[in-house]
């Protein structure tokens, strides 16, 4: 079985960000980028599935040359080959999904893993969009995954519990934390990754549906009041919550 995993290259959530001069994007200077944490879980699940059923895993990433770093990291974890869909344009989720769908279709992968969301724009939509474009089944925000023949069963997180969902291949699964513990790339993995091929394909222009108007910093909240340093402040706290905030 040929399995695809789609990964995005995102700022590490711990880094500070600055708005760039265009007021629409972040200034990449000094920002460290990583493999999207949910995509790392997706890579791990793809590798585990391959180890169980055989086959090969191909990683796909869309973006400028910098995304090669993230493809390389996936290869070092054990993915067999990489595809870089190259563009320097900022694509919206629909354009990303269309490009991924085209690539998945031509590679014939019937099982695809993605992350539940990319921690840059936090859209959380590309998995389902891609599946609908392809006419594939899909289950989003999965914390378990099981494949038996062509039957796919997964548990997905919902408010107050989990839904046990059943469907069949072809299928896209989006990964939530808890699905697995991603492996570290071994030294050998890192060495062999250097020799693996990354196929580069140029992406043509894509129509956009979502127009990005502005990126800004949130208005900093006025620093709150520290009411005291021990339980003598509790009475005042309760009074404020009751009378000023009116939340209790």
């Amino acid at each position: 079985m040929k399995i695809a995993v789609c990964v995005s290259h995102v700022p590490d959530t711990a880094t500070r960000i600055k708005i760039a001069g265009d007021q629409k994007s972040i200034d990449p200077a000094g920002v460290s980028f990583v493999l999207n944490p949910y995509d790392e879980i997706a890579v791990e699940e793809a590798l585990k599935t391959k180890e169980k059923f055989g086959g090969e895993v191909v990683v796909v990433s869309i973006g400028g040359d910098q995304v090669k770093e993230t493809i390389r990291k996936s290869l070092a974890m054990g993915v067999d080959e990489g595809v870089h869909l190259k563009t320097d344009e900022a694509l919206d989720s629909f354009a990303v999904a269309q490009a991924l769908a085209d690539e998945i279709k031509s590679s014939g992968c019937e099982l695809v893993f993605m992350g539940k969301q990319s921690v840059d724009y936090d859209n959380g939509t590309v998995g389902q969009l891609t599946a609908e474009l392809l006419g594939y089944n899909s289950i989003a925000v999965c914390v378990t995954f099981q494949l038996e023949g062509t039957t796919v069963t997964a548990e997905r997180e919902i408010e107050g519990g989990k839904e046990v969902v059943e469907t069949s291949l072809p299928c896209i699964i989006t990964a939530q934390k808890g699905l697995n513990e991603p492996r570290y790339a071994s030294l050998k993995g890192i060495m062999t990754a250097k020799k693996k091929v990354i196929q580069e394909k140029l992406l043509g222009a894509k129509p956009v549906r979502v127009e990005n108007l502005l990126l800004k910093m949130p208005i900093a909240k006025n620093p709150g009041r520290i009411l005291g340093s021990d339980s003598s402040a509790v009475a005042e706290l309760v009074k404020l919550l009751h009378e000023e905030a009116k939340v209790i």
Binding site: T13, I17, D122, V210, E211, N212, L213, L214, L215, K216
Partner: peptide, 15 residues
């Protein structure tokens, strides 16, 4: 909508 883990806000419109 909040983006970058709430560190920034994005304004968009649909075409």
């Amino acid at each position: 909508r909040p983006v970058y883990a709430g560190k920034a806000l994005q304004q968009v419109k649909l075409s």
